[in-house]
Amino acid sequence: MAAGGETGPAPTGSRGEAPGAQDPSEALVTCRGLRKSFGDLVAVHDLDLAIAPGESYGLLGPNGAGKTTAISMLCGLVRPDRGAVWIDGQSVGVGRAAGKQALGLVPQQMALYDDLSARENLALLGRLQGLRGRELRRRVDEVLEVVQLADRANDRVATFSGGMQRRTSIAGGLLHRPRLLVLDEPTVGVDPQSRNAILEQVIELGREGTALLYTSHYMEEVERVCDRMGIMDHGHKIAEGTRRELVDSIGSLDRLLIEATGDLDSFADRLRDLAGVEQVDRDDATVTALARNGRSVLPQVIPLAAPLDVELLSVEVDEPDLEQVFLALTGRALRD
């Protein structure tokens, strides 16, 4: 956040470009000091956010945390009371087209016209993005292939399942090849199979270089899709980082649960000597070890067993999840 706080949109250049203090090469998206109130309710408090090109960023938080309001301000749909947004070096605001060419939005609702076919919906959205003629038709066909709906292109959206509608909605955000795709809770109301398919498609988009801003109250989705994430609660961003960084921030340890037979006392002693292992407990046929990074310790466990004639029956690594992070930070469960 700018020093001293900003009372209005940050000053921009004559073409609405980002001020000189920001290095556009480092961030595709920059939000500074975004704030929005609805009456007495402050929905978003002074949000700072930066997303690098090609990065997948997750915004996690319970219902009512302010995620959708933050997204709406970022996309120029809601006017912030304070703060500013830049996308691809251009200032984004309500009623301004600048910056929106780089942005593709997949709203929380399906945001499709039920009485139109998938192709007609996409053609309309493509025309609004400036696509024309042959390029538009080709691009519509391409995105329908991406979301695996090419065989239903001419069917009315009203006849689609929830998952198919969601995939069509995602296709609508991809038509103009945006540099940033914003997905606001894209799996709400979708069956598990479709949800998995959607997540796979989103992950693939990220691999292809599209930056993603993904909001959800499902931590497992955010963990699966995103490189880095921010956690919001009551309008505040309370934590930010990779999953590892977030977990480390609360001091939680991974737990290795090892079931084995043989000289387990000696095995436990050897485990305590491993770097990164904080604590080892033994209980009948189970040895439990707490470590900073269970995944890095795991490869060292197996070589320990053989010389001691210990037969390993099973090894589990139980990592702290974001639920625990949220609980540690707020004292509440992530899901209410």
Binding site: L103, L105, A111, Q129
Partner: peptide, 14 residues
Amino acid sequence: QGTLQRLRAAPIPA
């Protein structure tokens, strides 16, 4: 149904 939001997110006049 969110279509208005989608339209407003496009690079068109408000």
